[in-house]
Design a protein around this nucleic acid. Structure first.
Length: 368
DNA sequence: ACGACGAGTTAGATTGCCGA
DNA sequence: TCGGCAATCTAACTCGTCGT
């Protein structure tokens, strides 16, 4: 096999994920970077004493790029891609219970807050299953890109609201009750109503995120300081600082159940992005679509016939009603078709647009 | 015996920086 | 912009403890 020729100028200094493939198109490695070009350069221009990397570099036949808006998105996207494809050279993040987790408030009268890892395999292997054993009244918050930060929030909430942390309810109160860190719901030391109220408050603080959480943590920090617990106060301050930096808003991984296809038309081409169960799982290859009336509608119609999904998000169509009725005539329950002008779906379209333009620029450079 | 958990360690991944 | 080195960060691993 011809060794892969790396041309730095082909790769942008933007955040994104890179997917390395071998000669047969198999995915060897998925990585992410704030600056794709610099990161990729380090594979090809650095001497690597690690055998694995030398071997990986030797097998690379092509590198696909998925551009994202910020580091948070690249982290989440990389995590999703690794869980889905299990590339042989990825060691980190490959285990299903690794990577970015959520906090989950379990349902029922004795809710507890725990760490929840979403099973990303379900998206690929059993798309119709999923949902699974989700308990009624269960709520999820996240995902959290930093495990340390997530654990700090978890500990803070449990402490602050004195929620139970035991996996199985004991018959008698445990040590945590005696040191004031658990309300002792197991032995009825607190009424069910009062406990539920604490759970509701904790959940609302978590779902509000940002400002409210910071205020509560600041209050807690002052209490630690007053109690001379300076180490805990300093730790809390550190985490408040992290939260204040406002972890980038990310759109590639959301807690939403539906499957969406994102189609962006432009420059005589279309690019389709796929969101499965709220996770962006990648973009396809650009397809030529002439900029003539009716062509976009025809493309969407054909796409919907061949790829059933819940929703199609598209930047331009001539006649939405017509597309929907054509699908109905074909005996297909038509997906929701949206042409967003702002908000999350619009952001997804923008991401699709950027990737389309990048793919076209690459194709143009190759043609020269 | 077994699993859950936490502390400590290691190996690997990524970024920052610097000179050419 | 390239090429390389070093620092930093963290997932993964190891091991000991504890409760059931």
């Amino acid at each position: 096999m011809q060794p892969f020729h790396f041309e730095p100028s082909r790769y942008p200094e933007q955040p994104g994920c890179y997917i390395m493939r071998d000669g047969d198109g198999r995915i060897l490695y998925v990585g992410k970077s704030k600056k794709l070009r610099s990161r990729l350069r380090s594979y090809f221009y650095q001497k690597h004493d690690r055998k694995r990397i030398r071997q990986l570099v030797g097998e690379i036949a092509s590198i696909d790029i998925i551009l994202v808006h910020n580091e948070a998105e690249s982290l989440m996207l990389e995590n999703n891609l690794i869980k889905l494809h299990k590339p042989p050279y990825n060691r980190a993040l490959k285990r299903d219970n690794s990577g970015y987790a959520y906090l989950r408030m379990t349902g029922g009268p004795y809710s507890r807050l725990d760490v929840y890892y979403r099973d990303r395999r379900a998206v690929k292997e059993a798309p119709e299953l999923e949902q699974g054993e989700e308990e009624a009244g269960e709520m999820r918050f996240g995902p959290f890109a930093s495990a340390r930060f997530r654990n700090e929030v978890l500990a803070f909430i449990n402490d602050h609201y004195r929620l139970r942390t035991c996996t199985t309810m004991p018959k008698r109160v445990c040590l945590l009750y005696h040191i004031g860190r658990c309300s002792g719901i197991c032995e009825g030391m607190i009424s069910k109503e009062a406990y539920q109220e604490a759970v509701r408050s904790a959940a609302s603080l978590l779902s509000g995120g940002g400002a409210g959480l910071i205020r509560a943590m600041e209050k807690q920090m002052h209490e630690y300081a007053e109690r001379m617990e300076f180490e805990r106060a300093a730790d809390m301050l550190r985490h408040i600082r992290i939260l204040q930096k406002n972890p980038d808003k990310q759109i590639v991984d959301r807690e939403s159940g539906n499957n969406q296809d994102i189609i962006h038309f432009g420059h005589g081409n279309a690019l389709v992005g796929q969101v499965r169960k709220g996770m962006l799982v990648g973009f396809g290859q650009t397809a030529a679509v002439p900029e003539r009336p009716g062509e976009y509608d025809r493309f969407v119609l054909k796409h919907a016939l061949e790829n059933p999904c819940d929703e199609i998000i598209v930047n331009s169509l001539d006649d939405v009603k017509n597309v929907r009725s054509a699908l109905r005539r074909a005996g297909i329950r038509p997906p929701v078709i949206t042409l967003p002008k702002r908000g999350l779906k619009y952001d997804l379209l923008q991401l699709c647009k950027e990737n389309l333009e990048y793919q076209l620029a690459c194709a143009a450079a190759k043609g020269l």
